[in-house]
Nucleic acid binder design. Sequence first.
DNA 1: AAGAGTCAGCTGCTCTAACCAACTGAGCTA
DNA 2: TAGCTCAGTTGGTTAGAGCAGCTGACTCTT
Lengths: 238, 238
Amino acid sequence: MAARDLQERIKRLIIDRRLASGAPLPTEPELMEHLGASRNSVREALKGLQAMGIVEIRHGFGTYVGAMSLAPMIEGLAFRTVAGHYRGEDTLLQLVQLREAVETGLVSRLAGRVPEGDLVELDALVDRMEEQAARGGDGIADTDRAFHATLYRGLDNALLGEVMAAFWDAFHRVHTDLGGAPQDPLVTCRQHREIVDAVRSGDAIRAEEAIREHFGNIRARVSTTGTQDPHRCHNERV
Amino acid sequence: MAARDLQERIKRLIIDRRLASGAPLPTEPELMEHLGASRNSVREALKGLQAMGIVEIRHGFGTYVGAMSLAPMIEGLAFRTVAGHYRGEDTLLQLVQLREAVETGLVSRLAGRVPEGDLVELDALVDRMEEQAARGGDGIADTDRAFHATLYRGLDNALLGEVMAAFWDAFHRVHTDLGGAPQDPLVTCRQHREIVDAVRSGDAIRAEEAIREHFGNIRARVSTTGTQDPHRCHNERV
DNA sequence: AAGAGTCAGCTGCTCTAACCAACTGAGCTA
DNA sequence: TAGCTCAGTTGGTTAGAGCAGCTGACTCTT
């Protein structure tokens, strides 16, 4: 009763005081008095808000308004996918399809509208990706993530970009946790190059096709990922 | 230190034991012993997991594996949007654009692929919507939600449908909380009818255009929503 | 014998009080 | 002046007690 209520009241406090991300919240004793609850209840409420990214707690320093990033969503999506996977569901494939559906829709809108500066940056990222592929593939995942982030920057909508990045993160994290088959770096590089070229040419159909082929490659890898016993890979992050 | 770790260990417990949604978790005393932590720490960890929808706590009954729905994501998105809005940011518009971008991408894929049964259901929903519009608009929001949910059912991907529904919920909740301008029911009905017809005809371009017009209408409403003082509408849910 | 009411026992919820650990900043020392 | 130390603040953790909601078995009534 009280706990749920406390969370709402703390949220209202943030709204009412127009607190921006990073702004300090009252200390625990202050919140205790302001909310008329015990320390324990206040802390439990804060823990819940922390899990939602609304609040950020720094030991020995204070409590602050959180970045409200989509990190909690990534957490939830990833766990949901891993848990479902181990119970024999096709959750990982669904996650890939989610990304594919959304990204094909977005890229056709992007075709021909990406600023030249971003296109140059994308080219550079693919260059780096090829370089990393030649050296064994170290750090290629980060480059891949940067590629997608840069691509969707042209949409001029921070939220949209964040959501795309969140889906990418969730997929990547689950895939590595589950010990999925690594991608062929050369094929991946070629596909990314094609995406840049297609977007630059302004051909929406071709861009969509390029994304679809890229995801077709990913889907193939996912399908080969069998259900492993979780006890066998205890370094996984869930 | 311990709290974050405890959450991970509880998550691993769910994974390792292959617990499905609704399965009972150990009681608090059992978790205390199993995890070697105090009651308080265990509870704080559970509160965090509860906020992420991973765990469901029922007073006087027990703790269970949660439905892992996207409800927490809705919560986070909604709060982020409301908080940003009151600080003068265009967060609500960004949320609409997110929906528009994603749904236009999906509907073009849906065109001509929706099963006849779903199409009939969509027709019935629009019929009901028109009826509700004539009677003053009561319950029209629920029908609208059902419409979008039914539409994307044809994608045959539960996760995708849930994400769409989550975006709808987040927008709707924020819009009502902020006391946004109500839509013109008749226009909305006409636009939904057009969407069904377009999808049935199999014309992807037309379907996309129908969705875009629908969102153009929504965007217009959003733009007229000024920043109100939160103290003036205390029945808002944040 | 069937039904309703009661109570014991589980469960999670809240509170108090004390101590531990991380960080900051003022003041001291070299 | 530069660096160190230490006291004070903040959150982290533990402990123990009592409150509150739910279940199921027991008992009493009909």
